[in-house]
Nucleic acid binder design. Sequence first.
DNA 1: CACGCTGTACGATTGGAGTCGTACAAGGTT
DNA 2: AACCTTGTACGACTCCAATCGTACAGCGTG
Lengths: 120, 120
Amino acid sequence: MTAFKVLPVPADAPEPLPEPAVGDLRLEAVLGVLNDPLRLGIVRKFLLEREEFDHSCGWLGLDRPKSSLTHHFKVLREAGVIRQRQYGLERRSHVRIDDLEARFPGLLRLVADWTPPEPA
Amino acid sequence: MTAFKVLPVPADAPEPLPEPAVGDLRLEAVLGVLNDPLRLGIVRKFLLEREEFDHSCGWLGLDRPKSSLTHHFKVLREAGVIRQRQYGLERRSHVRIDDLEARFPGLLRLVADWTPPEPA
DNA sequence: CACGCTGTACGATTGGAGTCGTACAAGGTT
DNA sequence: AACCTTGTACGACTCCAATCGTACAGCGTG
């Protein structure tokens, strides 16, 4: 039913970092977090190009300082859009596809179909 | 096909106020405008309780100063969420259901199903 | 024409979010 | 242990958006 690839979570995976429960997801919070082209691009790339279990912050290859990326990933996690786990050095993330699809069906489709604005 | 009631526009209706064309609607702009509980409530009420052709600003019965409401309606219009026409004294608005459904299918369903946060 | 009504325009204030530098913590590697 | 790598924490700065008061414009009615 879900149009996006959901990868299995290893049994020995670390606990996710603090995040809102599915029932606590708020539409206005999710939308308020997806109004930024940078974050929209992050979520979109996670949806379209996911191959392994999940990806570290640097996998995106964004040309921004690390402290900026930390900020955006934290914002996405606290709104309930992504889940983060600590794997040794790296903090890997993935989109909470099932949760978002359950609460806001169709929303991720819009994000995946989003076209970034002209860089010019 | 559209799940929302679309009322016909009278032939003698005034021209709409300046607004983005359908093709120019931007997801990040629309989401960025719907991240506010007040505006989310406005659009939701327009979707659920629409009976006449369209409604004036005061129809909502919101307990806010007029200058605040003017601001929010303008923001919604400039993002392409609502269309506004000047009818003599009143400026009446309606949600651009067809346009939004064409560009971002399913988005209005999420807004209509939205539950306002606890006022407590 | 004078008044009332709807809504705009403008400006001031406020709070919050994005951006990023620097310093630091924690795990891995050799 | 020394070092590298990944990412956090904190703080400062800037900028934008929300809020709203006041003054005004436009239309309709008596």
